[in-house]
Write a protein that binds this DNA or RNA. Structure first.
Lengths: 232, 232
DNA sequence: TCATATAATTGATAAATATCAATCAAATAA
DNA sequence: TTATTTGATTGATATTTATCAATTATATGA
């Protein structure tokens, strides 16, 4: 592990408040690894061995059932994934693969469980982190059930535009087929929907998104913090 | 609050391992209330004031957006809800209403946060509980994205049949329209799907469900612990 | 650079699902 | 009990979304 990785990790909400000695011990047993794009890091159903931290690159969490598969989330720096499986000492519910060249830190699950039993601050941070993850999935599920695909696409664009504020443009973080799967639709349907949304102030060319009429687009998306998350 | 409520609550995984003194203090500030059916206990967007514990009856967690609404979960005794919002001190993401005459215990959120900061066992239980909630929603979202409505209905029936094992029959716990909404479909579609599944060993008459051919039904549902939860 | 693979788009069509309206059944209250 | 409300079912139809096939664009590697 690079020494330069540590301060960044230390600043994550999950690790920010714990005792220095516990932090050091936790990352003692951890190790970093660089992966090319398209590597399967985790297979759903396997026992949870490591908490993963994405330092560079991007990781797709996806689910499979029979022939089908779908994207459940994208994790980008600096983010962690599958905390819940590690804590429950249960099988992973999702698989994970790198979308690009990525640098990942892996913290052994038993160390994690040991430390939050004796560091109350870390326990509180873990609780807060998990509560945040839970709420994120609830919002995702709400979007799937309450919005149709056109509304989900519009909401996705509005959400990313807000992050890019005050600009009225941003670049898509991942391939369109991944976005389509995340939004619970086919790539063909996404393609047609983007075309259709040109009448509502959205302009997508390749990976570049421009919003020409925010109000019109927002009228389709009807953004709501209870579905799209807090404003930032 | 009835004295007879306490032992039951004390046996919940969430409260089982904490110090008796902390348990007593936590429930000191709590109070129990009886509600008729159809009462809105919580409105999404409101600040999270209380952890709710269902002692008797049934509570529907639902989400609203614009004109639309959908059922997100059913909580039955003895279960808790909206732990995550209490912990994050954030607005509720879901509304809650009683589906039947229900007895609910309400624990003030600030007490909750205070106690898990000083009782490590309670912190660990909270972490485990939240991780479990998270995984439940992930499974629900996976089901919505990977299965079509026929498969979701079949899986719902298989899941409930397993709980009723070794019987090959059980009663629907809530109205069909609630089940339909939970499964992300219209009541009409559920009705037609149930009719269609008669060819696959499922027999539903009113609230009574009988499975005449488990293997055929399971062939439609393709049950999977990563979508349907652990076997019990 | 070109050749090749992969992703994105487009059109045609099919399947899934929702909507609307009418009826039927079941629960509930007077 | 009967009257009334509410939920469930059914049919007809519209809409949404997926599938399949072909083409175009874009990225990737020799």
């Amino acid at each position: 592990m690079r020494p330069s990785d540590l301060p960044e990790i230390r600043h994550l909400p999950l690790f920010r408040d714990m005792l220095q000695s516990n932090f050091e011990q936790l990352l003692q047993g951890a190790y970093a690894q660089n992966f090319p794009a398209g590597v399967e890091l985790i297979r759903q159903g396997d026992p949870a061995d490591f908490l993963h931290i994405v330092i560079e690159g991007a990781v797709e969490l996806f689910a499979e059932w029979g022939e089908g598969a779908c994207t459940m989330a994208i994790v980008q720096p600096i983010g962690t994934f599958i905390l819940a499986a590690c804590i429950k000492d249960a099988p992973y519910l999702m698989s994970a693969r790198t979308l690009e060249k990525s640098r990942i830190i892996m913290v052994p699950a038993p160390d994690l469980r040991a430390v939050f039993r004796r560091d109350p601050e870390f326990a509180v941070s873990t609780i807060t982190e998990l509560a945040g993850c839970y709420r994120a999935v609830v919002r995702h599920a709400k979007g799937l059930k309450l919005r149709n695909s056109r509304e989900r696409v519009a909401a996705y664009m509005v959400k990313h535009l807000r992050r890019a504020a005050p600009h009225m443009a941003f670049g898509l973080p991942v391939e369109k087929r991944v976005i389509a799967s995340y939004l619970g639709m086919t790539p063909e349907n996404l393609s047609r929907t983007l075309r259709q949304l040109e009448a509502d102030g959205l302009r997508v060319s390749g990976t570049h998104v421009t919003v020409t009429d925010y109000d019109r687009l927002a009228a389709v998306a009807r953004p709501d913090p209870l579905l799209d998350g807090p404003d930032p």
